[in-house]
Computed example of a mutant assay.
Amino acid sequence: MPKYNKLVRDKIPEIIELTGKKYVTRALSEEEYIKELTNKSFEELEEYRSAVTKEEALEELADLMEVIHAFAKYHNTTLDEVEKLRRKKAVKRGAFKEKIFLVEVED
């Protein structure tokens, strides 16, 4: 039986069951959950980086958004609150629209 040892979406066990396969899961503690959610964010970001087509990239961005939703919920906030902070920082520090690449700063 292949071992995965990773956080999966809520319906994955049900989907596996429909294939007739057996599986083993367990509930994570809060400490384990945030650690595994962080690991999942890196996994999804790497999958985005590896995407070749626009469709693949959008699928991976959707997965990243699901992780962002979970992070917000974990921190007892909403995406609206996160978005307000994003806008505030964009006003104060800018966004990434100008594609500026900082090479160096004199000491």
Rank of each mutant, 00 (worst) to 15 (best):
M1I: 12
P2T: 11
P2W: 05
P2Q: 13
K3C: 03
K3R: 06
N5M: 01
K6H: 10
K6A: 09
K6C: 05
L7S: 10
L7E: 07
L7F: 08
V8K: 02
R9I: 08
D10Q: 08
D10R: 04
K11A: 05
P13Y: 02
E14C: 03
I15L: 05
I16H: 06
I16G: 04
E17L: 13
T19I: 04
T19A: 13
K22G: 15
Y23F: 15
Y23G: 12
V24D: 12
L28P: 03
L28C: 09
L28R: 09
S29I: 06
E30R: 12
E30Y: 05
E31L: 07
E31F: 00
I34K: 03
K35G: 00
E36M: 11
L37T: 05
L37A: 02
T38I: 05
K40H: 10
K40E: 13
S41V: 04
S41E: 07
S41W: 03
F42E: 15
F42A: 12
F42G: 10
E44C: 09
E44G: 07
L45D: 01
E46I: 08
R49I: 11
V52L: 13
E56L: 04
E56C: 07
E60I: 06
E60R: 09
L61M: 13
L61D: 02
A62Q: 11
A62L: 06
A62W: 02
D63N: 09
M65P: 00
M65H: 14
I68R: 06
I68G: 04
H69S: 03
H69C: 07
A70T: 08
A70E: 07
F71A: 07
F71Q: 06
A72H: 05
K73I: 14
Y74D: 04
Y74I: 02
H75F: 15
H75Y: 14
N76F: 00
T77M: 09
T77D: 02
T78W: 00
T78G: 10
L79K: 10
D80M: 00
D80E: 12
E81L: 04
E83S: 11
E83R: 13
K84Q: 09
L85S: 12
L85H: 06
R86A: 14
R87W: 00
R87A: 09
K89A: 13
K89I: 05
A90R: 08
A90L: 00
V91T: 12
V91F: 00
K92V: 01
A95F: 10
A95Y: 08
E98P: 01
E98H: 06
K99M: 00
K99I: 02
K99Q: 02
I100M: 10
I100A: 11
L102W: 12
E104H: 11
E104Y: 07
E104M: 08
V105Q: 08
V105E: 05
E106K: 09
E106R: 08
D107L: 07
